[in-house]
Simulated assay, not measured.
Amino acid sequence: MSVLSPRTKPTGPVANSLTTGQLPRFAEFYILGGSLLVSALLLLLVGFSIVGWLVLTAVIYLIALAILSSVVENRRKATDRVVRGLVTVAFLLALIPLVSTLATVIAQGAGEISWSYITSVGSSSFDPNTLTVTQTPGALQAIVGTLIITGIAALISIPIGLLTSIYLVEYALPKQGLARAVTFLVDVMTGIPSIVAGLFAFSLFSIIVGPKAFSGFSASIALCVLMIPTVVRSCEEMLKLVPNDLREASFALGVSKFSTIVKIVLPTAIAGLITGIMLAVARVIGETAPIFIAASFTDNFNANPFEGPMQTLPVLAYTGYAFPGKDIAASNASAWGAALLLVILVVIFNLIARVCAKIFAPKGMR
């Protein structure tokens, strides 16, 4: 009878199969720190610059990460790490102009923003005794004009764009002639330059009203030409994301197509629809050329969109640099303040859109 010998236990350190063959947890941060140091030392020899330092750091980081991962891990993991590194670098490169623009606008415009600047109308006065021109900065006329012109454009464009997208997704057949024609026209309108939209609106109202056709409503029509295709495209994609199973389940219960769209499709896609609409509003609220052509600009307060020129924040920022007054520094400061106010308005509109999407979304999607 043979006796089974007990299994001997290994006396050396036990290797963990889950952690072998891979870089340490924070290896990428260590490599990045080393790349920053090496690139700084190399550039100190030939001339240091921030842009060159960042670019050289990215190159050294990707090369070092690929080599170390290939040696320690394997080729597949090395490729994955390099691709993730490239995506991260591309994201940071795309983030640089955005952060730089916001930082510049905030730094230049924060000193100009005040309650008096927001609530007063910009004007200039001449003192005959001292022969000096005093400029009073103000953006009330531009804020009101921006809200009126953009609001009218949104009231016209959103229903047209939303109903068009509903037709294309819910009613039109794939090869129907009208649907193909509408899609083609939307694609053409998407590529129309903004200045062409302004010329179109000004020419149209010049024929209807006369040569002095500057008005806020004319500028709103120009913005509609730019806003409608954006609303159609964004809403169309959001409606396509709604599962067909929801539509079929509604039809199986005997619900009409119109009720299915209103009570099932639109509430399901409401968050995406609001986001797309806000993208369209943000697309046109900062337009300068069409408003400058169709509504011109003025320092006077005008809240009537059907008569006389109107001022907007983008045009105020442009004219502050292109047509400064006697005090050039004050005009430039007013332009930066208008730019910062425009950014704040866009942020406020996006926050309102997020809140509305949260409120009106179906309970399971909140």
Rank of each mutant, 00 (worst) to 15 (best):
E28F: 12
M1H: 07
G191N: 12
V71N: 08
L185N: 06
L44S: 11
S35H: 07
L266M: 09
R283K: 11
K9Q: 11
V262G: 01
I156H: 01
T298N: 14
D299Q: 12
A153S: 15
P13G: 07
G109A: 02
M189N: 05
L95Y: 04
P243G: 04
T101Q: 06
D127L: 05
L32W: 14
I156Q: 06
V121I: 15
I50A: 15
G216T: 10
A335D: 05
S100Q: 05
W53N: 02
I195D: 09
A110Q: 12
A154W: 10
F349A: 13
S206W: 14
C235Y: 07
T288K: 02
Y318N: 03
L23Q: 09
V144H: 07
A339H: 05
L41C: 04
T136G: 01
A94H: 02
E112Q: 12
S194P: 04
V343P: 02
G272I: 07
L140D: 00
R7N: 08
G122M: 01
L95N: 07
A153R: 14
A289K: 09
R7T: 09
F48S: 04
V188Q: 08
G254T: 07
V347D: 09
V59H: 04
G109E: 09
T20Q: 09
P211V: 12
R84L: 13
M278C: 12
S157A: 15
N244D: 14
V355G: 09
L345P: 02
V144T: 10
N332R: 05
E287A: 14
A110V: 15
V51P: 00
T268H: 14
Y321L: 13
S125N: 09
L241I: 01
L62P: 03
P229H: 06
C235A: 14
V144L: 10
I60A: 01
I274T: 11
L45G: 01
V343R: 06
G364S: 10
V169T: 09
Q135C: 00
E170P: 03
I143W: 05
I67M: 12
A103T: 03
L18P: 02
L102K: 01
G138S: 05
G286T: 05
A222Q: 09
L162D: 07
L98N: 06
I152Q: 08
L23D: 11
F205A: 12
T146W: 05
P267G: 15
A58P: 00
K257E: 14
F205G: 12
L140R: 08
I31D: 04
V284N: 09
I67S: 10
A222S: 15
C235D: 04
K175G: 04
L340G: 00
V59R: 02
G191C: 07
L41I: 10
V82S: 11
L345W: 06
P324G: 14
I277T: 10
V87T: 13
P324W: 15
A213S: 14
W336E: 11
P211N: 14
S35Q: 03
L246T: 02
L168F: 08
P229N: 04
N300V: 10
S125T: 15
A154F: 13
L95F: 06
V255W: 01
G308P: 05
S100C: 02
E237S: 05
A139L: 03
R75Q: 11
G337C: 02
L68C: 08
P314L: 06
A335K: 01
P6N: 15
